[in-house]
Nucleic acid binder design. Structure first.
Lengths: 139, 139
DNA sequence: CCCTACAATAGACATTGTCTAAGTCAAGTG
DNA sequence: CACTTGACTTAGACAATGTCTATTGTAGGG
């Protein structure tokens, strides 16, 4: 089930205990951990892993395109291993819950040439904000 | 031309030299300054203004709905005084340039009920990423 | 089994943002 | 126009997140 690890291995990534643990911690669906959360979980399996290594490893996975960096709240960046199916995010402004969602249509197509100002656009990030069912009723 | 200041005054906002300077610095089109940039510019007009006041003032303007907080890069938040015309942002990943853009259609309408998972959605933030004309040719 | 280049480490440092206690002031009241 | 009061501002400590460096460790090829 460790797809992420397999993909990384297949790219000639030098494997170490630290990298394996980071990849395992981050693998799965609807995973959107911050670097510190990844570190906290990694430490339970490999107590001597350092923060710097977690940051470096996450950065490399992003560069390789196997993990996506998401800025949902202007605070800590979050890391999403679901890099191979285009999707967007739904965020609860109260408790911070995050869901992957798949809007209809291509958001890129909605931006006419006249509104591109000569930019070469490579991707679009859409964040839907609101309240999750639980927070909406407790509000 | 200080529309922002007028709008704030009209809401019974207690006026001080500091608040006036922050509002003036932030006013205009295609303005997307970080809190520290606002502070740097404010200091040239009012040398004793503190960082805390800039943060407080920006936060209040956001609460009043007269300024929008934008998280374009996972680093510092940016503040956009163009709060009364819905728009999205186009960001250059190399030099950080930001443009306001107006996509066709309503991004909210693209998210079917089955993809809302019971969330009450209040707004959508769309960030188009790419390279600006100048960075695209120098790349 | 040994090299060697690449990876990991601890901890200092940088950036961005928040909080507190004390001083200051805008604006309504008399 | 002085007084008063509650809201505003300040400096600086603190917190959270991220980056960098010099040193030590190790994966994987020969």
């Amino acid at each position: 089930m460790s797809d992420l690890l397999e993909r990384l291995r297949g790219r000639g990534w030098r494997m170490t205990a630290q990298r394996r643990v980071v990849a395992e911690v981050l693998d799965g669906d609807h995973v959107h951990l911050t670097a510190d959360e990844v570190h906290a979980r990694a430490v339970t399996r490999l107590p001597e892993i350092s923060r710097a290594t977690v940051y470096n490893t996450l950065g490399e996975m992003v560069t390789l395109g196997e993990v996506i960096e998401v800025a949902t709240d202007g605070r800590a960046k979050r890391y999403d291993p679901n890099a191979h199916r285009p999707h967007q995010h739904l965020v609860c402004g109260r408790c911070g819950a995050i869901r992957d969602v798949h809007p209809a249509g291509d958001p890129l197509a909605d931006l006419p040439d006249t509104e591109r100002f000569g930019f070469v656009i490579s991707n679009v990030e859409v964040t839907y904000r609101g309240l999750c069912p639980s927070c909406a009723t407790t509000a």
